[in-house]
Simulated scan of single mutants.
Amino acid sequence: MKGDNRVFLENLEWFDESGQELVHRLPEKGSGEIKWGAQLTVRESQAGVFFYKGKAIEAFGPGRHTLKTGNIPILTKIASLPWAMNSPLRAEMYFVNMKVFANLKWGTRDPVAFKDSELGLIRLRAFGVFNLRIVQPVLFINTMVGTQGVFTTEEIEEYLNRVIVSRFNDYMGETIDSIMNLPAKYDELADGLATRLKDDFRHFGLGLANIYINAITPPPEVQKAIDDRSRVGVFDDMNKLMQMKAAMAMEKASESEGEGSMGMGTSLGLMMPAMFAQYFNAIGRGAQEGGSPIPSIEQTKCQECQSSIPVTAKFCPMCGHQQLVFSQCANCGKNLAPNAKFCSRCGHPAGEKPAPIYCKRCGAENMAGAKFCNECGEKY
């Protein structure tokens, strides 16, 4: 019909050409007319979420799906019977990219304050990378994406950077007294920071796959003091170094004086069993640490009872708690029913977000839950 701008969507599928799209909606603008019986194809690295009248109706895993009563029972009430189940539905399909998004950058835009037990108040810069993935597609759409047709990592990276820096500052203040020996603790700091951030990411349906700290840099004058202290430590250990070199020289001299090649061959013969034992032990450790070729079903934990369950499960087999999350309480993290107005666990209003914290000393604004001020380092 001339002038009819309606778009009928009968084959729904999506490919991420950029590698940076978290969510893609069909159609990208407005809502489309999805016909009864339309075909939906979801790839292994995707999830599909069907929206009707602004509400999430169902989530689909990998495979080919037909949008009929068998897949979405509620469609029997939505579809118009006088048109013999052939009427189009004003709806949208959101494709969620479930892959791991690697090498996202985080870092301090401005130096954060840190109270060092030896150097006093100093300002630190830190930066690194983290890996991100979506674990609750409906919750992520409802809390972060909204009605956007395309949502990329660029649009979320800045906010997540603020969250990481705030929690990094808190964790540093709680666990590190002085930055003198800080480089040796990067891995420990990264592990603790990842644990601290899991709840922040979980509220948005996100999972933090890994986080790495590349560098923590103090001001130049503080760095000079650390370098001077390192040089002193080198001089303290010089005597031990000279003793070790003398012992090595004596061993080499004794080998060349009397035994020659026969002595060397004997030494190698004695060393071979130990070398092979070390080699096979390393192989055994590698197999135990993840070298097994046997595939396993990816697991996650129920947020209610903490039982291990498959990532594709919609309900926990142990406690029956729903795993397809539509919204969460911003105060305690309880999974909420789609139309809940208050949290059944703590009574917090469902749509209300925690208020930011203002430092009593300098008045700087910090994220809710912060324990140390990013501006002056004061503890709340």
Rank of each mutant, 00 (worst) to 15 (best):
G3V: 07
L9H: 04
G19Q: 07
V23A: 14
L40I: 13
S45P: 00
S45E: 11
V49I: 14
F51N: 10
K53D: 15
E58Q: 10
R64D: 11
P73H: 11
I74M: 13
I74Q: 15
M85F: 03
N86E: 15
M93H: 04
Y94P: 00
F95W: 08
V96H: 06
R109F: 09
D110N: 02
P111C: 01
A113S: 05
L119N: 04
I122F: 03
I122K: 01
L132S: 05
F140D: 07
I141F: 02
I141K: 01
V145S: 00
E155V: 02
E157Y: 00
E157I: 04
N161I: 06
S166T: 10
S166H: 03
R167A: 12
R167V: 14
T175I: 03
T175R: 02
D177I: 07
K185A: 15
D187K: 12
A190L: 08
R196F: 13
F204Q: 05
F204M: 09
G205R: 08
N210Y: 06
P219D: 15
Q223F: 04
R229V: 06
V234L: 15
D237V: 07
K240R: 08
M244V: 07
K245I: 12
A246F: 09
M248R: 08
M250W: 02
E251Y: 01
K252V: 14
A253K: 01
S254V: 07
S256W: 00
S261V: 15
M262W: 10
A274D: 11
M275Y: 08
F276V: 14
N281Y: 06
R285L: 12
A287I: 14
A287F: 11
A287Y: 11
Q288R: 10
G290A: 08
G290E: 13
G290R: 01
G291M: 02
S292A: 13
P295T: 11
S296G: 10
S296T: 14
E304P: 01
I309A: 12
K314T: 15
F315M: 09
P317H: 12
P317T: 13
Q322L: 11
Q322S: 14
Q323T: 14
F326Y: 12
Q328P: 01
N331V: 12
N331I: 12
A337P: 00
R345D: 14
K353Y: 03
M367W: 04
A368T: 04
K371P: 05
C376T: 05
G377E: 11
